Amino acid sequence: MEKGLVHIYTGEGKGKTTAAIGLGIRAFGRGKTVYMVQFLKGSETGEMTAIKKLEPGFKLFRFEKERGFVWTLNREEIEELKAEIANAFDFIRDTLKNNRCDVLILDEIIGVLGNGLVEVDEVLDIIKNKPDHVELILTGRNAPEKLIEAADYVSQINCIKHPFQKGLGARKGIEY
């Protein structure tokens, strides 16, 4: 790849992870190695099953154990989650340092920021120190202005209408 750029998929709407995976599949289809690190998603999802079928060219990594939403966690669980996220950041830095992938997706990394589990400067450091050839994709609601400024592509996904508003819960194969 000539020059790897930085993408952000943000907003309140559904489809940020889906868009990132779509870009990853396109890159995989062109012979690129894709790594996806998922944050704040502990349960099994359809994308996990699909991506396993694409290994070794497209790999999904999770460092967190399954638990409830961040706002339901006690102080001890938050500290444990922060340690797991620190391990993920070590993996990301090592992956970039050793050129293990062409495309790196950091799914819900912006949610990690929004929940105060890491500082924006840590994510900016990843952007600043990524190898030139690596395409970097960040997802999550409420991207901070500093990240938006550092990115090359920013897509805002808005929610105009969602079945949840009518009381319909998440559906297997559609929302997870």
Rank of each mutant, 00 (worst) to 15 (best):
M1C: 01
E2R: 07
K3G: 03
G4Q: 02
L5Y: 04
V6C: 01
V6F: 00
V6W: 00
E12V: 15
G13Y: 09
K14F: 04
K16T: 12
T18A: 10
T18V: 08
A19D: 14
A19E: 14
A20F: 09
A20D: 14
I21K: 13
G22V: 06
I25F: 04
R26I: 06
R26A: 01
R30N: 05
R30A: 15
T33Q: 15
V34K: 15
V34Q: 13
Y35N: 11
Y35I: 09
Q38V: 05
L40T: 09
L40I: 12
T45G: 04
T45L: 11
G46F: 07
E47G: 08
M48L: 13
A50G: 15
I51V: 09
K52W: 07
L54A: 09
F58G: 04
F61R: 14
R62D: 01
K65D: 08
K65I: 13
K65G: 08
E66F: 05
E66H: 12
E66K: 10
G68M: 02
V70E: 00
W71C: 07
T72N: 05
R75G: 05
R75K: 07
E76D: 10
E76N: 11
E76K: 04
E77L: 12
I78R: 12
E79K: 12
E79Y: 14
E80V: 08
A86S: 10
A86Q: 08
N87K: 07
N87A: 05
F89A: 02
F89Q: 03
D90V: 09
I92W: 03
R93L: 06
T95C: 08
T95K: 05
L96M: 11
L96H: 12
K97N: 09
N98M: 12
C101E: 04
D102Y: 05
D102E: 07
I105E: 00
L106V: 15
E108A: 11
E108Q: 11
I109T: 13
G114P: 04
G114Y: 02
N115K: 12
N115Y: 08
V118K: 08
E119M: 03
V120K: 03
V120N: 00
E122S: 05
E122Q: 13
I126L: 02
I127D: 00
K130G: 01
P131L: 10
P131Q: 09
P131M: 10
E135N: 00
L138Y: 08
T139L: 02
G140E: 01
G140K: 02
R141M: 02
P144C: 03
E145Y: 00
E145K: 01
E145W: 00
L147K: 04
L147S: 01
E149Q: 07
A150E: 15
A151L: 11
Y153K: 12
V154N: 10
I157L: 08
C159Y: 07
I160V: 12
K161S: 05
K161N: 04
H162A: 11
P163D: 07
P163I: 09
P163S: 06
P163W: 06
F164V: 14
Q165T: 14
Q165I: 05
K166Y: 10
L168P: 09
G169N: 13
K172W: 13
K172N: 10
G173P: 13
I174M: 11
I174Q: 15
E175M: 15
E175S: 14
Y176D: 14
Y176L: 09
Y176C: 15
